[in-house]
Design a protein around this nucleic acid. Structure first.
Lengths: 347, 347
DNA sequence: CGCCGGCATGTAACCGATTACATCCTCCAT
DNA sequence: ATGGAGGATGTAATCGGTTACATGCCGGCG
């Protein structure tokens, strides 16, 4: 393992000079600089990150603590975060907590001295983040958490509003018996979307009925099951609003199997606008959430705090969502677009 | 920032003792241990990771360098890796290279002193990994790379065999005009799958024709476009094998739009078995790749190398794949299953 | 009684960088 | 000629841990 001292010796200079060359300090004469560069390259020298962060007191990496890593949502989120942090020369330390309180604390501990800031997403609506474990004044950005009274920056998706508008749209189409397949009750997004549904129903003077709300868990399979359950109702609902696209797709599958025409006898809508959604049969109406933008904003906000005064601003930002009406809910849907949406996926 | 010395002073012991308590060393009497523990907790002491790794010469985290982060594939891969590393107390530093050679090198550099080992996936089939940038004897596991003659551990997916078997299945159904929508030509998986297709066609004495091979990029949109192109052919193909599920789904969408019954007039098959696949209409036949298992194996292999002698074994392991025949290709398909596949996704 | 072994604890060197401060040199102004 | 300014470079302290080795204490045994 070649260290800065090896380079210094070989280049017949002091360690200080080598360090200065590495860090682009202006106080080195051009010939010296070249000599050091050459020697460093020849020896294959790379500065030791741990040593560097010990003395500089920053790590140029940030932590991302998520409840889970399963599914497109987190993939997109991480991608958005990575995009902006990488551009600024920061690295990403990711961890998943599996919603386990102990693991959250362990992860938070482990991050000390490893990262300069933290993006934290703990989905349980009631759970208060174990903030006390964090060093005082440590930059944190919360995602989709209720900020629990503490002065943290946070970014939330306009879940309630999106759900409200989608259900209003279904109402405008003449639907009255609108069922909802909800997400996990301990999930912040799920609960907010459900609140939006309720608010919209009430705005149309329709009394919310527990029976129209079937619980799912955000996976396709639960949407499939929930839909089958709804099909046994008498009278049947005429529209199904699913808490996310995965469940909506499960529902579409159940409807196809049961021979129920969509949107003819049943309108379906989802939430998220995952890439798949427009390629469903029929193309799925949904609420578009730009997840990678969410990640980008969080990262930008965090890097801001890390770079500048590292102060908590207690700013709460809301990421807007937009209705995407396609054929599955009977509005005039657009046909599936054919323009490629991104460069190149894999596998 | 409270350090080990602060704790030592407050507990009236030396730093060595505090360190020993932290590391569960047996050489501390029970009363001392308790006293130190109490003081540490009261002061909110957490050891500084950078300092610790500087002296112990290991970081308890491993690096994951991927070509991109877009899509379910990488999400699953990271999840699989995270699962096993987390269990052993390791952290994950992820980075995406965007296939840019410079960025790969930069990332490799940045990993020095930050990670104990590396999982590396560079998809370009010709590209040789810039191995020389790695410290001698640094544990590395390559994913889906051709190991380029160096003595590295590697794990590859049985892409060629899976494609071969799927096309053989289509042939057995009586299809002769089987088209393929290929993935990006610089992608290792894509090329291997295409080779499998070719091999199967040749095994049936069908001369491969360039015209039956339409280029895609692994995204839904490209599958949609490619399928429209194929529909204009005279005579039409009777089966389409897509290089991955995303493109197969795009193709299904184009077929639905054109009113071509599946599998009646056109059989369709994909590759990967993403969770969505069984919920398509009709359910999609595909080649199942257990991506998270791929990640798990890679992680296990790497941790093995890190823990034990950190030697390169130059072992090459192959992850098997299995055919999943559903309705989209006319075999007797299973109906969509209704058992939940995983605990709880989000959004 | 004295010596020795072994255990609990302390002291200080070290890991590999950064950087404040010291030093030295050169060149210029008085 | 001389003092001083200022730039290039070197020396050594420092970051916060770990750990080899030193020390001191205690009990047991000859």
């Amino acid at each position: 393992m070649v260290t800065i001292r090896d380079v210094a010796r070989a280049a017949r200079v002091s360690v200080a000079t080598v360090s200065r060359v590495q860090n682009e300090s202006s106080l080195v004469t051009e010939p010296t600089r070249r000599r050091v560069r050459t020697v460093a390259r020849r020896l294959g020298y790379t500065p030791h990150a741990a040593a560097r962060s010990l003395s500089t007191r920053h790590t140029s990496s940030i932590g991302v603590l998520l409840p889970d890593l399963y599914g497109e949502f987190y993939a997109e989120l991480i991608r958005g975060i990575d995009q902006t942090t990488q551009r600024q020369g920061y690295h990403l330390l990711v961890a998943s907590s599996h919603n386990d309180r102990g693991m959250i604390e362990a992860a938070l501990q482990a991050m000390r001295g490893r990262v300069d800031g933290l993006i934290l997403m703990s989905p349980a609506p009631g759970a208060h983040v174990p903030v006390r474990d964090l060093p005082e004044g440590f930059p944190v950005v919360l995602l989709n958490c209720n900020a629990s009274g503490k002065a943290f920056d946070s970014i939330v998706v306009a879940n309630r509003q999106g759900a409200y508008e989608m259900v209003r749209h279904l109402l405008a189409q003449g639907h009255r018996r609108i069922a909802m397949i909800t997400g996990p009750s301990r999930n912040f997004d799920a609960v907010e979307r459900w609140r939006g549904y309720r608010a919209a129903m009430q705005s149309a003077k329709i009394r919310p009925a527990r029976q129209w709300e079937v619980a799912g868990d955000f996976n396709q399979a639960s949407g499939f099951d929930a839909c089958r359950k709804l099909l046994r109702y008498q009278p049947r609902p005429t529209a199904i609003f699913a808490g996310n696209d995965a469940m909506a797709i499960g529902a579409l599958s159940a409807l196809a199997e049961a021979g129920v025409p969509v949107p003819g006898e049943m309108a379906v809508a989802g939430f998220d606008d995952i890439p798949m959604a427009r390629y469903m049969h029929p193309p799925l109406s949904t609420v578009r959430v730009d997840i990678s933008a969410l990640g980008e904003r969080a990262a930008r906000r965090l890097l801001d705090a890390v770079g500048n005064g590292r102060k908590h601003h207690n700013r709460r930002e809301t990421l807007p969502v937009t209705l995407v009406i396609r054929e599955s809910c009977g509005g005039r849907g657009q046909p599936a677009a054919s323009s490629p949406r991104r460069q190149e996926g894999t596998s």
